[in-house]
Design a protein around this nucleic acid. Sequence first.
DNA 1: CAGGGAGGTTAGCGGTCGTTAACCTGAAGG
DNA 2: CCTTCAGGTTAACGACCGCTAACCTCCCTG
Lengths: 197, 197
Amino acid sequence: MATRTDAPTRREQILKEAARLFAERGFHGVGVDEIGAAVGISGPGLYRHFAGKDAMLAELLVGISGQLLTGAKRRLAEADGGGAEGVLDSLIEGHIDFALDDRPLITLHDRELDRLRDSDRKMVRQLQRQYVELWVGVVREVYPGLGEPAARSAVHSVFGLLNSTPHLGRGGSLPGRGATAELLHRMARGAFAAAEV
Amino acid sequence: MATRTDAPTRREQILKEAARLFAERGFHGVGVDEIGAAVGISGPGLYRHFAGKDAMLAELLVGISGQLLTGAKRRLAEADGGGAEGVLDSLIEGHIDFALDDRPLITLHDRELDRLRDSDRKMVRQLQRQYVELWVGVVREVYPGLGEPAARSAVHSVFGLLNSTPHLGRGGSLPGRGATAELLHRMARGAFAAAEV
DNA sequence: CAGGGAGGTTAGCGGTCGTTAACCTGAAGG
DNA sequence: CCTTCAGGTTAACGACCGCTAACCTCCCTG
């Protein structure tokens, strides 16, 4: 698991707060002064750590896409020979963990992509595409009745389902993390199964 | 069906283009000059039709939420006594029609809510809540094994699934509107079924 | 103990944006 | 024919925002 125990660097603090603010009010809706204030320094101080506001967003989005893809590849490799069913469950579990633990990032991920420089956007799109295609392969193995276009649509739709976590009441009345994760998992599997034929 | 055949008013043109632009680049990412240019007039000319940029967004979001709720109430009333299954299918169908035909609005609907004045935001939230609760009631009738919190989470997640249409390749390789609608419908039902117990 | 870099600060510039002001025009109506 | 008004126009203002410049202050290190 390799959990971090040392204190987060200033850069990491900034990225975390920027992600939260961008998710809450949109990239253009947040000023650099606010981001600075969120970590206890003031506006222009951020430029000691990032080339500009765009660079923060770029690093966040590239980081998210890369993390998702890397995790998925690892899960695919780990369960090699262990049945496609198990791999799909592992993929779903990983995506749910991400959606539940990093809601702001999940929100940014499909909301602010167009605010990136061309080169960064291309990179993020490529990582996202690889991630989707990895899912599509596994899904078609588990549900052979699905054609490729249908499988791709189904995968995008299940992402929509799993990424709905920001809309689930902010920690108030929902049935706890474990139960929510389980519910989402079952629904994802049910959606895929119903997509087949 | 009461289909409109007369030409759209200028106000309606503006709202339509504003919705598209807001969905593409975000509320703060679009200038009034661009909105004006999209309908062939220039920036400040918009103020003959709207009190300001905020008013356009408010009218769009209130309109969407109201339309969704009104349509859902109508479907519930129409099929009265005709079985909860049929009502749920009708609700799903209505939501899919909306998601497929008005993608920009669906995008705005859960993205730019926080940019509204307090009073407008409260109104939209109330309409949305009524819409969700209507679904929750029907879903629990069809799937009695679902508790109320689980049903509400499931409804939000299915909305995420259905609202994924903007991510499905923009008219390129996807299997045509009818097939897409059918796929989404089956997946929604499958997700609900899998949520139960 | 000098000095230099890391990481702050405030002041301010330049551009953009929402909005208003002032003016114009063409068509409808008495 | 004169008036009125809806629906435009351009100019410009004031606020805000991203970013740079110039400066300061520790702390580490040779």
